[in-house]
């Protein structure tokens, strides 16, 4: 195998509305470099691709294919699929890695359907054996580990955001312009995009190293501020149970669980969360779990490394001052 150049792995890197690579990019390139030679594809408005290409090389892409088009701003999914199809035709990759983001899933799905390539979704890692590329999945809330592969041909893999901690070494920039014939496939029109103005300096929930979550036990939206206070003391992201979201304590994008965000942080602190299976499915792969709940029979204690049966409004302020004391 050492006699051959490493197999090309095509990696689609998404860009944010303000022209930066998405945070998923570093993990995708690193995952690809672990199984072959990462070839990045960036799709951007004319004149904007070079900056993305430089960022991709800094993350470890050996080659960057740059597709410049105006249609990616006005048409949903299809321009990216056309670019991916052109790139795959050019380099004949052994695998195609795409972020398991909302847009990434659509692009990967349409690409797989168009080319007949098998697709493996929501992978937490990729590897290779003698027969080719393997995708690793963590399913049913981390209760099972599953490995999948293609019977033949390239495997399309969507990679869970925040799942790959590895980083590849930076490489010199090698950009090639990619000609993309339009497929003419019907697409939805993007009428407008409003970037979310993140008002908080807190880390993003997905991929966070520490998460503090609150549940119904907080009692009200006002009192939910205690969760945010502890999160700030720990430099953690803020999460919530579905019950807290349904009760209107916090916005739905903070929901951790089967139907929200799945997290796998170093530390997960559950405050006033009973720990329904629904919630545990989204957090039980955390390395360390701390729980505070006044109900001694709350299921959350079954998975907690350290549990305190008590009132969150007594325990948490004491914890916050103990942390502040230590920093002094």
């Amino acid at each position: 195998m050492t006699d051959h150049p490493a197999a090309p792995i095509l990696v689609l890197l998404e860009a944010t509305p303000d022209g930066e690579l998405a945070t998923s990019a570093a993990g995708l390139v690193a995952a690809a470099s672990g199984i072959g030679a990462p070839v990045a594809l960036v799709v951007a408005a004319p004149g904007r691709a070079q900056s993305l290409a430089e960022q991709a090389a800094a993350l470890g892409a050996e080659r960057v294919l740059a597709a410049e088009t105006t249609s990616a701003q006005s048409e949903l999914t299809v321009p990216h699929v056309d670019a991916l199809a052109a790139a795959a035709k050019l380099i004949a990759p052994e695998a195609v890695l795409v972020s398991n983001s909302i847009d990434g899933r659509d692009i990967a799905g349409r690409f797989a359907a168009r080319t007949g390539a098998p697709i493996a979704v929501d992978a937490v890692g990729v590897s290779r054996d003698d027969e080719g590329v393997l995708a690793h999945h963590s399913v049913h809330g981390g209760a099972y580990n599953v490995v999948s592969a293609a019977t033949f041909g390239p495997l399309v893999v969507t990679v869970r955001q925040g799942a790959i901690d590895a980083r590849a070494e930076a490489r010199p920039v090698a950009t090639e312009s990619l000609e993309v014939p339009a497929s003419g496939a019907a697409s939805a029109t993007i009428e407008s995009v409003e970037p979310v103005t993140e008002t908080s300096s807190r880390p993003e929930l997905r991929g966070a190293k520490r998460v503090v979550s609150g549940g119904r036990g907080l009692g009200s939206a006002e009192k939910f501020a205690l969760v945010e206070e502890l999160a700030d003391a720990l430099g953690a992201a803020v999460g919530a149970s579905r019950a807290a979201v349904d009760a209107g304590y916090i916005q739905a994008n903070h929901q951790v669980g089967q139907t929200g965000v799945s997290v796998s942080p170093q530390l997960y602190v559950a405050l006033g969360i009973s720990g329904a299976i629904q919630h545990k499915a989204g957090m039980q792969t955390a390395k360390n779990i701390v729980a505070v709940n006044k109900d001694p029979d709350a299921p959350i204690f079954e998975v907690a490394d350290f549990g305190v049966v008590g009132d969150v409004f007594a325990v948490v302020p004491q914890l916050i001052s103990a942390l502040a004391e230590r920093k002094r």
Partner: peptide
Amino acid sequence: AGTKITDEGDGGTRIA
């Protein structure tokens, strides 16, 4: 499950 304690006024300190 790991350690489970009942708060006796030192729960926060014990977590820290």
